[in-house]
Design a binder for these strands. Structure first.
Lengths: 205, 205, 205, 205
DNA sequence: AATGAATGAGCTTTCATTCAT
DNA sequence: GATGAATGAAAGCTCATTCAT
């Protein structure tokens, strides 16, 4: 019956954006479970009826927001990679990327915590995160491939996944949960772990 | 007011156990959020009144189950450590522990996924997990300490946390989420990463 | 969170009124404690969801009804006072007011009985009744003040409260509880008691 | 089936008394509605099963306690009347009785408030209170009768009821609800009102 | 297109009372 | 007689979604 509107007109696009913005703030503020559609519509200055003409249901809204957010996260992590000669990856390069990840988590830690949680119980959310992970892992493999000549022999596919997991989970620990250990110390050890994992001992002789 | 019944009689103990068992299954089957108290009682073959005389509320039940489960997990991970000389930790020892972790996740992956999710949105659940993590990290530091002489200089506290995160998150990926990469490959690379992180190159000269 | 709807549209106003009406009847019929929200909604021909969008909770509904009712009672008691020259208060004036009180209690004796009961156990209800009593006592003091010159010396503040209590409680007895003594006899003696309390013996010389 | 036990043995009597005592305290402490049978049994150091072998149900217990309490109240109000020559009732005698009533309300004001509330919604409670009122009114009529010769002509039956209401309701106001006006002032005016109502002007000279 | 009133299934929890042991 | 485990009706309230206006 009532199909979801695909906004084409200027006003429509803006309304939809208002809803997304309102939801994003409320999610961060009160948690996803603690936010109901009426509130979102109210905060967006829109009727609940409008809400449901722009989004099939609450879940759809969340997925859209999440997808959008992860896109921005991805860009933020891999930005400025040009500064590094890709096939000369060293401690600094690794640290640079790790720092980017940590910074990306600062954009909206609460929202991220909320959605990451759902990943384990909601297949749709998980799918979005999987897509994101695939992109990340692909990037990592690309780095590994570019530095193949300087690297230990390893199962590249598995290694990339392992590295991704390590970085992501340490970022989670640092940003989302605690314990309140100084971030720098975690970044240092993480960098060191990945560096020593990947690269042959420099010192020959 | 009406306090929670502490089972002393045989019948009581059994009833409480029935409830726990039913809840555990339903949680795994339909998700924690998707399971309501009535269902649990029904599946346990017990009245809803009984349910609430054994557990103050739904949450209490979950916490009790989780705490119990993590205790068993912990024991299962660190069992049989006696087989290794603690101060001779090598690839095999690392792999052994990692395998134990992976196996522990097999006990009830769905339940684990569910509760781990809640960690990010429920402070009580998080507290239980934090307690668990502290135990794990302490164990890891104990291992590092014992192998100090053969090890790179590192920030032990941070390193232990980083290692714990890496192992746990790879186990999650393998067991709880996918992608379905052969587990062995993940274990291999993970082992390698940790090994090369911790230990000085054996091969001198 | 979800705030209570303030009816603006015609339909809203009517729905809210339907709920109030239904509640009022059920309260009188089955007692306030004996009436649940579902019943009220049903009798109003409205969904339970509607009920809770107009009233924050059961209690709020009761308070609103009570406040409204006591307002009407107050007006009904002190109506037509213009017929009496205020500074010529005599037996007839006293009897007139007493009769008004008795009549006011006829409007909804059962509802009144129910709420008056709660006064002793519910601070919110009591607050509403206190506000009402203050209005009444103020009116009585106003009468006393106007007839000061013809009156015994008395502690006006205390006297007004004592009189108010006497009238209210006799009305209660007559209307709400029994025993079934002819009302007129109670009114007569009550009038006499107040009259002789207030006014100096006419018999001069 | 399971009939209620009528305690004859010493132990039984004591057990029943323990329950009554526990209930009385809890009622005063947490309100009648706020006290459940399990609590009562616990506080009495008795099993819930025992509770129900001594009292048919919660209501029965309450009625028994109330009846007992009103008996004690009655005795307390009319004690020491011998100090007054009954047929010489004057301001002092009236004040004495009023003071007794006020004091009686001090015995257990919270319990009294609770039960008095129920009077309006529970016919059984009301019946007990009615019986009590009849006793009181009878006593008042007895006093009036004894002082007939010094008294205005009045409808004795109605007058006694009116007086009873006045005293009881002022005591309620003073003890159970507020406003916090000094009690003495209320007693003074109440005494005066009743005195001037009852007795002919002492007509001096 | 937009509105917001209306819906009602669904959830958690309480507590008087029963009855098997 | 005594115990206390078990019962289950019943109540208050929420919120995603629909649809008449």
């Amino acid at each position: 019956m009532s199909s979801v509107r695909t906004p084409k007109q200027q006003r429509s696009i803006q309304t939809k954006h208002l809803i997304v913005k309102a939801a994003f703030h409320l999610y961060a503020q009160k948690g996803i479970h603690g936010t109901n559609s009426k509130e979102i519509a109210e905060k967006a200055g829109v009727s609940i009826g409008s809400f449901y003409s722009y989004f099939k249901n609450k879940k759809t809204l969340l997925l859209e927001i999440l997808e959008d957010f992860l896109d921005r996260t991805y860009l933020s992590i891999w930005k400025d990679m040009g500064n590094f000669t890709l096939n000369e990856l060293g401690r600094d390069g690794i640290r640079f990327i790790i720092n980017n990840v940590f910074e990306a988590y600062d954009l909206a830690p609460t929202f991220l915590r909320q959605t990451h949680a759902l990943r384990y119980s909601d297949p749709d959310i998980n799918r979005v995160y999987e897509r994101e992970r695939n992109r990340e892992v692909t990037q990592i493999r690309f780095l590994l491939e570019n530095n193949k000549h300087r690297m230990r022999a390893l199962d590249q596919e598995a290694a990339a996944l392992v590295i991704h997991n390590a970085v992501e989970s340490v970022a989670h620990t640092a940003k989302l949960i605690g314990p309140k250990m100084e971030e720098k110390r975690l970044v240092n050890e993480l960098t060191e772990m990945i560096y020593s994992f990947l690269l042959r001992e420099d010192t020959p002789q």
